[in-house]
Design a binder for these strands. Sequence first.
DNA 1: TCGATAATTCGACATGTTTCGAATTATAGG
DNA 2: CCTATAATTCGAAACATGTCGAATTATCGA
Lengths: 122, 122
Amino acid sequence: MSNYRNETEQLAAAFSALGHPHRLALFRRLTSCCAPGTTWNASSRVCIADLTGMLDIAPSTLAHHLKVLRQAGLIASARRGKQVECWVDPNVLLNLSHFFLTPLSDATPIVDPAQGDHRHDH
Amino acid sequence: MSNYRNETEQLAAAFSALGHPHRLALFRRLTSCCAPGTTWNASSRVCIADLTGMLDIAPSTLAHHLKVLRQAGLIASARRGKQVECWVDPNVLLNLSHFFLTPLSDATPIVDPAQGDHRHDH
DNA sequence: TCGATAATTCGACATGTTTCGAATTATAGG
DNA sequence: CCTATAATTCGAAACATGTCGAATTATCGA
């Protein structure tokens, strides 16, 4: 599965994929129907054609962006008849949020603020 | 402050900044001393020279990457004598984690899984 | 099997990004 | 004021990305 040498490059690839306004918009659109405990119903399924309308880009460009998101592990897709459905695995959201929250929970012990030593009081 | 037309572009700029292995490594290094409730002490302060060593890139390249991170609002910096210190505002971490967690909390009500209607049973 | 619809792949071009070395600015200490 | 140190800016080269239209693949219905 993993073509990446290390975790940093894999993570960077994920952020890079989200680092384009079109792809970020696509990702956001897809996250609106992927919460854990919720079920897919007909109207919440998203196929490629649904996404084409929202961005005013050529179908080939859309396909390219979706490929980038897929290769970064951010979205999954499967054919359903003539159409292809896309979705986001909720675990992807949890993992990425974890990246930002981990440094906070790994914090060094709280020190008395009165103890001074403040940064950038220039 | 904001040079961006909308929120999506601002967020995309942040992810784009994190979407390069070198910048992601720098950001991670800086998040190790920015937890809320913790204080900076002399050894936890990070200046540019500290960062140069860890990446094997030219100083000008490092300066470029830090500028990208700064312009994306991910890090802050201030001169302290001859050196320049960098840090990450903990709120940045909270905001970004929020982006990934919001779709989960905004989920549509839980539906009985037995009700069927499963996706991509191709 | 043929045609229509949905999506992807390919090739090409324009635009951005990464990287460096050289030159420049800022600061501290003789 | 001069020098050394720390960092940034600038310009150029190499590389990567975004975009499109045209051609291709996949599926369904007649």
